[in-house]
Design a protein around this nucleic acid. Structure first.
Lengths: 347, 347
DNA sequence: TTGTACGCGTTATCAA
DNA sequence: TTGATAACGCGTACAA
């Protein structure tokens, strides 16, 4: 544990007091110079800033934040950085925030609701001025969200909303999914299966609902029997799917997957078994992660730079005006046709 | 800008004082209870902690860090999160740190030396107890590094060292590269070309040096003429390479690339041109990013979980004992043979 | 075992 | 334009 260094010890970093002593001005003058405020002559500001640069003085952020009561920093809580979706979103948010004079902070919940809870409580206690959260699970930490709201702490949810009580920014897959399904129909597919983590014993949620509804709209069949639900690990989704189809002695001609990782797993397994993609199996992923493009995987993409801008804009607005009305926004995703989708080969 | 809320206003978060008033104990007692220290009876500790949980009290981190003089937090400065290499390394570091009772903080330099400079100065001023840095460029910010050292601030460099003046953790490609080159020789390749950002007008550095040396050792030829140096963008490396080879009317049978992104670009272009990989072109990448595995790209990999553990261990050691001797450590990488490398087809 | 009081480095208010 | 000074919330030394 590093001992706290006393201010007069020569070794530690310089404080505002040392800079004051060095330049001969008062603490207050130095503070005004550093923070670019008025009430100081250009000459003294110049001299103070020059000295600051020379000795490498930077204000102690803890002391500054503590005193100010705000940080000019926003935080983002994500489950992990497992796919490009997250890392690129954060990268963009950091960029946007810094252009607007904020800094940013990333915290990982590592898929643990308890850790999310602690992060929420700690970060909101003065580490950041506002928080954008992709919640790990559904209803685990709602009490904390409510508490933060009662404390007037700005909170924005992404990818999921909370009963219109908080700002939220989601992704709308309806349009892109419809385009994708239309394409499949147009090239000759009549039914489509699904591969994803949805629990088979519960009513369908999320993207699966949309798929079913859209297929119905388009007069196509959702092949429930050949769908593979409840796959826990994206990495093994492909093997699991082919195992099921082997037992059934039947295969779908087209599969919509939960995300690109799942799709790639399916794709790899198909290749391994010597199947032609898209001839014998058309595959649609989702997210457009890095690996999707070189593999020529069709996917659904949301503009992550735009998403970052929206996220920042919404949160910044809530920070500046906490009592403004709740906003529920949705970003449209687009369909990227690549060669993993195409006409089925006739037997 | 959020106005600072006064402590007595009912809306903001509770402070230690409010918790004291609520429970009827003093500020000091509450502090001791929260921090699990002695000098307090179990009964009162119990009651205070219970009340804290109920109202969701969490100590203000700025105030706490400010007072303590340390943060129990480490920081990591990376150029970006462009590849799995970085995001996974940070993810692992965060995990390791939190297991050791630290929190962690990620900052992105966005490839700007100036931004790196500011981050270095700000974060070291009391945001974190130590910093691990993957420096953006070579000698731009050395003065800051020196200054931090003079201030006794713990600093660890990764992927690059600074003249034995700072702890550093690098990656040693010698062994894995030799294995890869041996494999190429054994299956019948006699010469190897290189594709990467190295400036063609300067003496070779980094991995290229190793490649040349190892090929020489193994009695193989480094094909300088067919090598493509100075490629600025990894995404367009493949096109650039084939353009050069078209002019020369000659192609290498095996190419070592700077990293997986470069390799994938080459791979994609080869496929687009109808070439067989590895028959007509063997390709070696480096980093083992997510996209490498489904593409069956051979690559060089360093165990990122091990790397994170080493990083933390070294930095933690420097934090706890600043005057311990400098450590220069190197992690061995391993060769992953996948189907992008194989025997050349005879004409 | 408990409570009181001081100071950490900074910003901001007020008087000079 | 300047300098002195009062907080900010917390941890802790010391007094009770």
């Amino acid at each position: 544990m590093p001992k706290k260094k006393s201010a007069q010890s020569g070794s530690g970093r310089p404080t505002i007091l040392q800079l004051a002593k060095l330049t001969g001005f008062s603490q207050g003058a130095v503070s005004r110079a550093i923070n670019g405020q008025g009430g100081i002559s250009d000459a003294t500001r110049e001299r103070i800033l020059k000295a600051a640069r020379e000795i490498g003085y930077a204000p102690n952020p803890s002391a500054r934040n503590f005193k100010r009561g705000y940080t000019k920093r926003i935080g983002m809580i994500l489950p992990d950085l497992a796919n490009t979706n997250y890392s690129e979103l954060y990268e963009n948010l950091d960029q946007v925030a810094s252009e607007a004079g904020y800094s940013s902070m990333l915290a990982l919940a590592h898929r643990s609701p308890e850790r999310e809870r602690n992060l929420l409580l700690q970060l909101s206690a003065g580490e950041v001025d506002g928080l954008v959260v992709n919640p790990v699970e559904n209803l685990e930490n709602v009490d904390v969200y409510q508490k933060l709201k009662a404390w007037r702490f700005p909170l924005l949810f992404i990818y999921r909303g909370y009963e219109d009580q908080f700002d939220s920014l989601g992704v709308d897959y309806t349009f892109s999914l419809r385009k994708a399904m239309q394409y499949l129909r147009d090239v000759g597919h009549t039914s489509v299966a699904y591969l994803g983590p949805n629990r088979p014993d519960l009513p369908p949620v999320g993207k699966l609902v949309e798929v079913i509804r859209i297929l119905d709209e388009l007069g196509m069949k959702f092949d429930e029997e050949l769908s593979v639900l409840g796959v826990d690990s994206a990495a093994e989704a492909g093997q699991e799917a082919f195992r099921k189809w082997k037992v059934l002695k039947r295969r779908p001609t087209a599969v919509v997957t939960y995300n690109d990782q799942t799709a790639i797993s399916l794709f790899s397994e198909a290749k391994r078994l010597g199947l032609s993609v898209p001839g014998e199996l058309s595959i649609l992923g989702s997210d457009d992660i890095d690996a999707a493009e070189p593999l020529e995987l069709s996917t659904l993409r949301v503009d992550r730079s735009l998403m970052a801008r929206s996220v920042f804009e919404m949160l910044d607005n809530r920070i500046k005006n906490f009592d403004s009305p709740i906003r529920l926004q949705s970003l449209r995703s687009e369909f990227l046709l690549r060669s993993s989708m195409g006409p089925p080969t006739r037997k």
